[in-house]
Amino acid sequence: MPDLWLPGAEIHDLGDHAPTDQQYPPKAIAHITWDRNATAAAPQDWCTYEDLVNYFTGSGAGDAPHLVWDPFSGRTAQLFPADSRSKSLLSPTESPTRTNRAGRVVIQIEAVFFPYCRYQGRVYPRLVDTPCAGWGRIHAWIASWGVPDVWPMGRPADFSGHRDEQVWETRGGWYAHAHVPFNDHTDPGSWPDFTAGSGTPDSPPSQQHPVPPQDPAPARYQVSINGLAYGYGAQGYQVTAVGRALVSRGFGAHYHSGPGPTWTDADTENYADYQGSLGYSGQAADGVPGEGSLNRLLGYIPGQRAVSVAHVVSAARTDPGAEQGHRTYGSEVAIVEQALVDEGLLEQRWADGSFGTRTVAAYAAWQRRCGYEGGAADGIPGQATLHRLGAARGFSVTD
C-alpha cells in the first residue's frame, strides 16, 4: 500500500477522517489559496505558508485540503491521510456525487499562491512562474496512489471554468478546481507539468525537489519540524544533535568528519540507514527526517533554542525520581544537556532530554565552575548559572 502520508511532509492531522466513494476513478484536485486579490499594476505581498497552515488547522479546518504546499521553499503540510476525503470542494445536495469523495482517492492540494504575489521583491503572475519547489515529490506520491498523469478537462492555462459531470464521474486524473462540477471557483490558473523538475538551476538546495527513489544520489530538500529545519543545507544545534544521536546508535558510517551544525549528504545517508532500521523504505527512507523517526531517535522533538528556568528546574526535580528516561520538558532539557556536553561535563549519550541523576551531577559541576559551593551547587539550575551557560553556548533563557 502506498504511504498514507507524504514522505517529508509536516503532519497536522485534523482527525475527522472519512472514506471516499470507491466506485469512481482516482483523482487529484489542484487549488491555489488565492487569499489576496492583486493585479499586475498593484501586486501584493505573498501570504506566508505558516499563515495558511494556521488557518487550515484553525478556523478554516472546515475547508481544509490534504496538502498545503509552499511552491517557493517546498515545505508541505498534510492535514488528512490520502485515503480520507478532505474538505476544499463545495458538495451541494443537488450534486450527483459527493465531490470531496468522488474517487478511490481525491487528493487535494492547495498551493500557497495568488496571482501577482510579491515574494522577496519579485512579482509572480502565475503559479508556474514560481520555483515550484517540492512539486516532484508531491507528484510522485500522488502517482503512487494510482492517479494518472492526465488532465481530463485540460491542463489549466487561465482562470476560466470548464465542468462536465460525465467526465468527472468516469475519468481519473488531475482536475483544476475550475473543473469540478457544482463548484464556482476558477483556480488554479496554471499548474506545473508532470515531467518538469522543481526549482531552477540557481535555486538553493532547499528549493529543489528530492531525487526520485531510483536515483542513488542523496535527497536534497528540507523539511521543518517544530520550527527547525532538517535536510541538506539546514543549519543549527538540532543538526548536531541528530548527528551525534546517529553516531551513538551506530549510524555514523558516512561521516568523514563531524557531525556538525550543517546538514550534509553524510547526514542524509546516515539518517537513511537509521530509517531503514526502523522498517521504512522508498521515499520514507530517503534520509530526510519525519517527526516520528526524529522523536524515536532523540526521544524528543527539538525546538527553538530558548529555555525556561521554571521548566528545567521542574525537570531537575522530577526526572531523577521518575521512570528511567522520563522527560519533563525534554526539548528544553536537551538544550541544557548539550551545553553541558560541550562544556565537557556530561557524556554525549546522556544528552537525551531527561534531567536524570547524571545531568544533575553535571549541572552541579557547572555550578561549581561558576564559583558556587555546598547547597548552592546541588545540580538544580538557578537563574544566574543558567544564564551563564546560555551565554556560553548560544541559547536564550526565560523565567
Rank of each mutant, 00 (worst) to 15 (best):
P2C: 11
L4K: 10
W5M: 04
L6C: 12
L14Y: 09
A18W: 10
D21N: 08
D35L: 11
A38K: 06
A41H: 14
P43C: 14
D45V: 11
Y49W: 15
D51M: 09
D51F: 09
V53E: 09
T57Y: 09
A61I: 05
A61R: 15
A64S: 08
F72N: 00
G74T: 14
R75G: 04
Q78T: 14
L79D: 07
L89A: 04
E94V: 11
V106C: 07
V106I: 03
V106R: 01
I107T: 06
I109Y: 06
I109S: 13
V112F: 12
F114H: 15
P115S: 15
C117T: 11
G121S: 14
T130P: 11
T130L: 14
A133V: 06
A133D: 08
I138K: 02
A143F: 00
V147N: 02
M153D: 02
D158R: 12
F159I: 06
W168N: 04
E169A: 15
T170Y: 05
W174K: 07
W174N: 10
Y175K: 05
A176P: 06
T186C: 14
T186F: 12
G189E: 09
P192Y: 04
G197A: 13
S198N: 02
S198I: 00
T200F: 11
P205H: 10
P213M: 10
P213S: 14
D215Q: 03
Y221T: 14
G233S: 13
A241L: 06
A245Y: 03
A245Q: 05
R249F: 04
P261Y: 00
W263M: 10
T268V: 15
Q275V: 04
S281K: 00
G292K: 09
S293C: 12
L294S: 05
L297A: 08
H311D: 15
R317S: 04
E323A: 12
S331D: 14
E347Q: 15
F355I: 05
T359K: 01
G375R: 07
A377K: 01
I380R: 04
I380F: 00
G382F: 05
H387N: 09
R388Q: 13
G390V: 01
A392L: 09
R393M: 05
